[in-house]
Design a protein around this nucleic acid. Structure first.
Lengths: 236, 236
DNA sequence: GTGTGTGAAGTGGTTCACAGCG
DNA sequence: CGCTGTGAACCACTTCACACAC
């Protein structure tokens, strides 16, 4: 679940300040995971601002909107060169493009979703996934009533066929929305195929995967438990 | 996002925690968020082990199953007193009870869910929520077709009525599964009522809340973007 | 003056290494 | 002897403070 960050391949106009590590040549920059998490949020906020016609933002304003410290915002943004204007702030469009070039993939990603239950279907209709960057090409389920059908225009296959489909469709990412009990089994089957590079796991279990696969988990019940824990402790 | 739990005014007394009886509460101790996240996962894993009839686990075994370092596991577990047996490991049942007494609320929580779309309904049926600890007592939506109906046995109300219902039903927690555009508005309305203490936000936006409300966000698109980011960078 | 960019200091979480006990 | 418990070292992220550009 821990990942090693790679290099930043985005074209760079600003200066680089990080001394390059002795290990590798080329442009290499480590961006911490929490930073990426925030970048995605800056990006969303910038889209709102753009929609409202705002042209310029300060680190302070962004910080307040997203509950980060202004200094944190500035540090995050400064990793990629000087993009703001001193005494003014950040130009909304320019910053949006800039972050986009760091986050966004220059290409589309082919995705499969396993487990076409309520949660799976909810994700199929999830707004942020309606994006040309993400292409959900196949569904897997073991409910015979669903196999062979199309759901939201996406064909649903038997789990048995998953390895073949993954290879045929060059699927790289698996979204896993199956019940806890079958999660590991589904992962094992799907990763028989070469090609899967990442898994977004919504099942409330930890899964074991081959080394070359990167897993991120969205663990709903863990978040609820955390909330309860802190609420409980605030009471006393 | 992560509204800081750090404002805990727990005076730190000696590091010696609970003597031997785990069921005793009332002792307060600062415990880090990542630790709680892991505790929840230990708990789940212990349930699996118990179901399989395993009686004892080592920190190593737990670490391997959940991809944590064994030393991390031991440190986490040692926060609450000596619960393992040196030379042996941890007794599954005993550890499960112990963690349970730390995590679980000694009482039920009354919950409302706003936004009875696909995602909201998926959560209503979500296994880990079928737990006597969580009681979803009310739904809010602004779709007139849903208002006045019951969904999975839970009455659905107009957003207008939310403050009243929250007070009547003594609701403390709000699960927010509305579209990004209406998230803030719904939060504002619902938190007119005194009583809301925590929000679990599934909307892909950052929301602003009164100081006394604790917010945790489950941000699906952020997780996907993080996954893509690291995949992209692994390629180069 | 205003708000960014950034080394330096601070904070907090993780890992190590070994003592301690069954 | 094995595996836990834990201070101390380590590392990563955050925050501060101030120089600097506009």
């Amino acid at each position: 679940m821990k990942s090693s960050p790679g290099k930043n391949s985005a074209e760079k106009k600003g200066k680089r300040t990080l001394p390059s590590s002795p290990l590798e040549e080329g442009e290499k920059q480590k961006i911490a995971e929490p930073t990426i998490e925030r970048l995605v949020q800056y990006q969303r906020f910038l889209e709102q601002l753009a929609a409202e016609g705002q042209k310029v933002v300060s680190s302070q304003e962004m910080g307040e909107a997203l509950s980060f410290k202004a200094s944190q915002v500035r540090k995050d943004l400064s990793y990629f060169g000087e993009i703001g204007k001193r005494g003014v702030g950040y130009h909304v469009d320019r910053l949006h493009k800039h972050i986009g070039s760091i986050l966004s993939s220059p290409r589309q990603w082919s995705i499969a979703l396993a487990g076409v239950g309520k949660l799976g279907q909810a994700l199929l209709g999830y707004k942020p996934f309606q994006n040309e960057k993400f292409q959900i090409k196949a569904l897997f389920d073991h409910n015979p009533a669903k196999i062979g059908k199309e759901i939201r225009g996406i064909p649903c296959y038997s789990l048995e066929d998953a390895p073949r489909i993954v290879e045929d469709e060059k699927i790289e990412i698996l979204i896993l929305t199956v019940p806890a009990e079958s999660a590991q089994q589904v992962v094992d089957k799907v990763s028989e195929a070469e090609g899967i590079k990442g898994i977004l796991n919504f099942s409330p279990v930890s899964i074991t995967v081959p080394d070359h696969i990167l897993v991120y988990a969205v663990d709903i019940s863990v978040e609820l438990e955390k909330l309860l824990f802190y609420l409980k402790h605030k009471e006393s």
